[in-house]
Amino acid sequence: MNPSARKTFNQNFTEEKYADFLVDLNTGLKKPIEFRIAETPVFLTDDFRDKLLQAGEEIIAAILKPDFKEISERAIPDKWRVANENDHAHFIALDFGVCKDDAGNPVPKLIEMQGFPSLYGFQAHLAENYRHAYNIPGNQTIFFNGLSKSGYLDLLRKTIIGPYQPDEVVLMDVDAPNQKTAVDFYITEGYIGTPVVSLADLIQEGDQLFYKTAVGEKKRIRRIYNRLIFDEIDNDPEIFNKVADIRKPLDVEWIAHPNWFYRISKFTMPFLQGDYIPKTQFLHEVKNIPEDLQNYVLKPLFSFAGQGVIIDIMDGDIEQIQDPENWILQEKVTYQPVLESPDGGVKIEIRLLYLWPDGDAGPTLAVNLARLSRGKMIGVRYNKDFDWVGGTVAFMHK
């Protein structure tokens, strides 16, 4: 991490500035932010940025292989398989923990990946407010590939809206206004004009979908910017008796198609290799259980937000798993507290966010998201009662 930028930031930081930053960040929003925002952004060195770029390129190359759809077919649960899958994921997110190599230098290590949208709208808003509150220099950016904010929003618009009008493309989640990430939904609506709807708002007529506009007009949906994760409705087996069954062959485009959520996921990791990839195997393919199990974690393939992960494997844990083909055994990634706060080190996770509009040969690395942690894991429930933790963004030299 960039020590000079960190020193300057910490010397000028005050709790009053942070409080004002949070007020400004929430001003004018349709929904307040419902997750903790960290006191500070991350400042990357050129060297670490370049390592992230290399890691991302190696992973994207694996996803672009001609047989990727074939090898990832088993990743999609039968009950959540959706018709009319397209050729590629429109969004790719790669999560890296910041670790250290044997020489003590910070290096990224892949934690997870997903073929699903993240906070593409919110991150641009967040960075603007960090920049204003803390006078972050103009030669620092959160964007990649030479993108400015306007260029980034053009790429986002191209990816999500494509050839349609903004009101023909809806951002859809199961209960959109009440999601913790609803702030991102409404910021995205402000940036590119896509209305926010819930699953129950979809009106089906034949194989077409409609929604009601704010003035009560029934409007045809040409594309769904999908933010729904099927895990969130898994506890309601009758859900599609009450709402449109979006798994059926409907005359609508998906951005991104739900099947890509599973194809690009923990399931992909055993097929990856490289300096920045922890050794990962499907549990049913592990021939010899490692003796140093304290250096591994067990992860279920079909869960999200860290649910079901066994961080500290105990005797008998592996033997008790009834479906080993649906689990991975992964080399443990040890986050290092490389970000200096006023009262100690903080661990960092950085998410690279790609956009892949129709017509492009491959995805474009566009922007990033970062999370700070002092807990055992990165998630919210592991960081209660801590400061200098939560959602943030990484700045780097243009």
Rank of each mutant, 00 (worst) to 15 (best):
V389E: 03
L202C: 12
G391V: 14
W254F: 15
N288S: 14
F13H: 00
Y276A: 08
P237D: 10
E57N: 14
L352E: 07
P77W: 02
G104N: 03
Y262K: 08
G193I: 06
G162D: 05
P137D: 08
N295H: 13
R220W: 07
Y276D: 08
D67R: 01
V82P: 11
S150M: 14
I318P: 01
E340Q: 15
V297D: 06
V346H: 00
W260T: 13
D387K: 11
D101M: 05
D24V: 11
I60N: 07
I60C: 03
A370N: 06
Y186C: 00
D50Q: 14
N383D: 03
P106L: 01
I277R: 00
A103P: 06
F91R: 06
V98W: 05
F43I: 03
D20Q: 12
V243L: 07
F43P: 05
G379A: 12
D78N: 12
L171G: 09
I289P: 06
Q54G: 10
G306L: 09
R351A: 11
N105L: 13
G390H: 01
I321Y: 02
D207W: 13
M172P: 07
T181N: 11
S148P: 04
I160N: 01
F230E: 10
Y191C: 08
T280H: 03
L339G: 01
F267S: 12
E325A: 15
V170A: 03
R81Q: 13
